[in-house]
Amino acid sequence: MRLKSVVAGLVVLAAIGAGGGLWLTAPKPLPESHWQALAAPDLGNGERIFNAGGCVSCHAAPGAEGDAKRVLSGGLALKSPFGTFHVPNISPDPKAGIGEWTLAEFGNAMKRGVGRNGEHLYPSFPYGSYARMKDQDIADLYGFMKTLPVSNNIAAPHELGFPFNIRLAVGGWKLLYFNDAPRVELAGADPQVLAGQYLVEGPGHCGECHTPRNALGGFKAGEWLAGGPNPEGEGRIPDITPGSKTMGAWSTDEIAAYLETGFTPDYDSVGGSMVDVQQNMARLKAEDRAAIAAYLKAVPVR
């Protein structure tokens, strides 16, 4: 996930972060009380958020298929020229996974990018999007994740060279780019479009791939979902705004059908890293895919 540019940004920001214990760049978890007033988890909604969030794309064992994807054993190596991130085990195993985490600890990882020991997490975990999620959805998601199988796998530590191995440096990146404001203002949008906005900008984290980044790893202003060169390899990530040369011409139903089946209106098929995303989208209800499609039709043309 756009690691190159994110990590490149850290070089510069290491300077700011390592500038030393500045309160500006310190991890900022939400207080325990923030997480206390929530209702008991709705496991059905938790599963929906789990699918929308695409946790399996990164946290399942590499190459896992079918039901094996529900075992969030970690171990996938996310390579970048600056080093390799080894995705952690987030199964409910009490030792190897996150089985002993409180809701507050889980919620602060998801919405504040803060780990269990109060450390900054790297934005290769897309909390920059998850920060927009509703607290109750986080609680439902966590409740659902506790029903998944355990794994005792312990992922290797990240192999990041200096200065990327300094978690404090992430504080500089957060200071500049981390917020939970809407990505686009859609004045007067109908409820369906707003539902789609939530799914795309929050759990779906579509912009993490589809929005181009600057040298510091922040999204380029005014280019939300505009696509660009694939920073991790060959080819391009397509523009998915209504200005797109390809899908700009698709109807909302056709966009929803692509997310459900993986086929374009002229029977070309989904490819690349979108395949995992599409398989997650296929598990949502039709109304959620329709909302995502409506939102993609409503965002500004790029």
């Binding site: 098929s269 490819g271 690349g272 995992d276």
Partner: peptide
């Protein structure tokens, strides 16, 4: 999709 995932790029 299985083949396009690995062997084709936009």
């Amino acid at each position: 999709g299985a083949c396009h995932q690995t062997y084709r790029v936009k």
